[in-house]
Design a protein around this nucleic acid. Structure first.
Length: 110
RNA sequence: GGAGUGGGCCAGACAGUCGCUGUGGGGGUAACCCCGUGGAGGAAAGUCCGGGCUCCGUAGGGCAGGGUGCCAGGUAACGCCUGGGCGGCGUGAGCCGACGGAAAGUGCAGCAGAGAGCAGACCGCCUAAGUGGCUUCGGCCACCGGUAAGGGUGAAAGGGUGCGGUAAGAGCGCACCGCACGGGUGGCAACACUCCGUGGCUAGGUAAACCCCACCUGGAGCAAGACCAAAUAGGGGAACAUCUGUAGCGAUACAGGACGUGUGGCCCGCACGGUUCCCGGGUAGGUCGCUUGAGCCCGUGGGUGACCACGGGCCUAGAUGAAUGGCUGUCUACGACAGAACCCGGCUUAUCGGCCGACUCCCCCU
């Protein structure tokens, strides 16, 4: 499931726990649902090339899709830091997996 | 074989597997599921021009502002393209050029130099009439004067070469070349040619300086714009209820008066307030705009070409926190720049590697 509306993004930004996965920053806030939801906020500051931004988004979405069963009921917004384009795909994938696991551990409801 | 010039094309492929999304069909109350089928670029980029489309403005015309700038053609249009002209570069194939006007006016030009735009005597050359000095009495020198041949300065010194001419020189005169104007010839034209005449020659550079001339030109953009439309608050309107009286057993009808709560001791005032329905504005959200179009492919014909005409065939991304990806194999080894966002035509910029045919120069062999 994805986060779509501006209000939903605002809610996560205002009250969220921060996680770091290499050059990625994740904001998580429990949503009271049965499943996690993902929102992406990869700005032009991270990298001005659209191709690179698309690459990051695909990679994050794919990792989220494969692990969504183990993540708790969180709304998650993923942001990228400048210079992220230098990171390789396997690097980012590993970092994300570690974060998903930490999230799952700290989730009270599951 | 080497070096090079200018075009066209491709932009990893195949298989498996897990996903995303448009669409057609089927199933399901629905969420959704199953099957089929489509899914980024040559630049999708920069947003620099031109057009379509949309809304706003607009009687018509002019000015201002902006743009374009050799000529002809192509085109929906262009600052684009094609062909031609002119100038420059290259042995050549070819390449490059904001390439109208400087005898309408204004402005600008560092350094050097005597002088830089109605030219100018620093050196030099000439002269010895006049003034002055020296004198071996032949002359010599300075001033005055003449001179744009030569030197020197400069990006540029006011046509070039030769002959005549002269005190020395000078378009001063002549010939040839160049230049300007007029005519002629060729060309639609830009322009070219120089058979002809005229002029001794003047007109320097700069117009991505103002300017002049010719032509073009409303503004804003798909977050354009059109439609549907909650919840909450609020606007306009109607009816009814609430109170009293009368008539009636009653439902109700008629008439009249405004009521309650809060703030005030009280009055006035101020604020808030019932139910139902209708109307219009409008937010979140949603739908359309949204992909069939100056479209693509093939053929025939016309044209040097850009391109056009005709015939046949094809449908080829339409997302909206924004889809085309991940993984694993294999392949004469690994791959650049880079991601559609209303749509077209161009330009410019970025770019690994490869393929095709055309042309030029050099070398070697036959």
């Amino acid at each position: 499931m994805r986060l779509l509306r501006p209000v939903e993004f605002k809610r996560v930004f205002s009250a969220a726990e921060r996680y770091r996965a290499g050059p990625l920053t994740l904001l998580a806030s429990s949503n009271g649902l049965e499943h996690p939801r993902l929102g992406l906020a990869i700005s032009k500051k991270s990298d001005k090339r659209a191709v690179q931004r698309n690459r990051i988004k695909r990679l994050v979405r794919e990792s989220f899709r494969l692990h969504q069963a183990v993540i708790g009921a969180y709304d998650i917004v993923v942001m990228a830091k400048p210079g992220i384009a230098t990171s390789s795909a396997p690097e980012l994938r590993k970092a994300l997996e570690r974060v998903w696991r930490r999230m799952a551990d700290s989730c009270d409801d599951c």
